[in-house]
């Protein structure tokens, strides 16, 4: 059974990740556009001092965009192609399908990840185990974003709704929270609100691990950030499992 699931996941990655890229390599550039736009703006407006934040924000945004792309693709496969119905009415489990789809979306983000990781090596001052902390943070973010994208996709009836929702989510997860800037820039009154977004905790971890934050990442703070992020990912995973409409009601 495990071999069958693995074969299904690999098949999804090949068909939805590598094959479209082979046929249309421009997809690779497409995923780089948003994070690089922000990085460019930050460099122009904030100067070299803030470039570290632009890089750490780029890593976070690149992973979050997997969720947005997943939401769009799954809505397209469901509403336009009716392919999801063919999958539902088959031995393939929802978890297998979503894992495969989320990994195939990851394929598109590989160039962005490589570029931002390389940039971070040049510009950041990684603390001890910093690389592992960033990796763990990005994996939790990937789970969070994928679960969110999948759940939303099962409720959306048309691609136009995806075009409407994606920017809203992007604002609340990427632009407003201190992903691309230090949280100290926010007025103290507003700061507690920023912590409502899981990306704030993720950004704290990445910025701290990369050694670009003005306040060093302590063990206690790291555990708190990681714990909240883990909890957010777990909650979204549960929501996706229990509340997604894999089968319509």
């Amino acid at each position: 059974m495990k071999e069958r699931k693995l074969a299904s996941v690999l098949s999804i990655i090949a068909a939805n990740g590598f094959l479209p890229l082979r046929r249309q390599p421009l997809f690779l550039i497409n995923t780089l556009t948003s994070p690089f736009s922000f990085l460019f703006l930050i460099f122009i407006l904030g100067g070299p001092d803030l470039i570290g934040y632009g890089i750490s924000g780029g890593l976070v945004l690149t992973i979050l965009s997997i969720g947005t792309s997943l939401q769009g693709d799954m809505t397209h496969y469901k509403a336009d192609l009716k392919f999801q119905e063919m999958v539902v009415a088959s031995p393939v489990k929802a978890g297998t399908y979503v894992t495969g789809m989320a990994l195939s979306e990851f394929v598109f983000s590989i160039p962005g990840m490589c570029v931002f990781i390389l940039l971070s090596v040049f510009y950041a001052h990684y603390i001890f185990l910093g690389g592992l902390i960033v990796l763990a943070t990005l994996i939790l973010l990937w789970i969070f974003a994928s679960a969110l994208g999948f759940t939303l996709a099962t409720y959306l009836a048309d691609m136009r709704e995806t075009f409407m929702i994606a920017p809203i989510i992007s604002i609340f997860l990427t632009v407003v929270p201190p992903v691309y800037y230090p949280i100290s820039r926010l007025p103290p009154v507003v700061r507690p609100l920023a912590y409502l977004s899981p990306t704030t905790w993720a950004a704290n971890l990445v910025q701290g691990a990369m050694g670009i934050s003005s306040t060093p990442l302590t063990l206690g703070q790291g555990l708190l950030d990681g714990g909240v992020l883990l909890l957010s990912a777990a909650i979204l995973f549960l929501v996706a499992w229990k509340k997604s409409q894999w089968r319509e009601r």
């Binding site: 069958r4 074969a7 299904s8 098949s11 999804i12 090949a14 068909a15 094959l19 479209p20 046929r23 249309q24 336009d80 192609l81 009716k82 392919f83 119905e85 063919m86 999958v87 009415a89 088959s90 031995p91 393939v92």
Partner: peptide, 28 residues
């Protein structure tokens, strides 16, 4: 079971051979 939904459409970036192969490997 297997189903062809009404108005379903294939992936534009695949050819028929790849489509069938994908659907079968996906099913296990």
């Amino acid at each position: 079971i297997a189903v062809i939904p009404q108005e379903s459409r294939p992936f534009y970036w695949m050819n028929p051979r790849e489509l069938i192969y994908y659907f079968l490997t996906l099913r296990g």
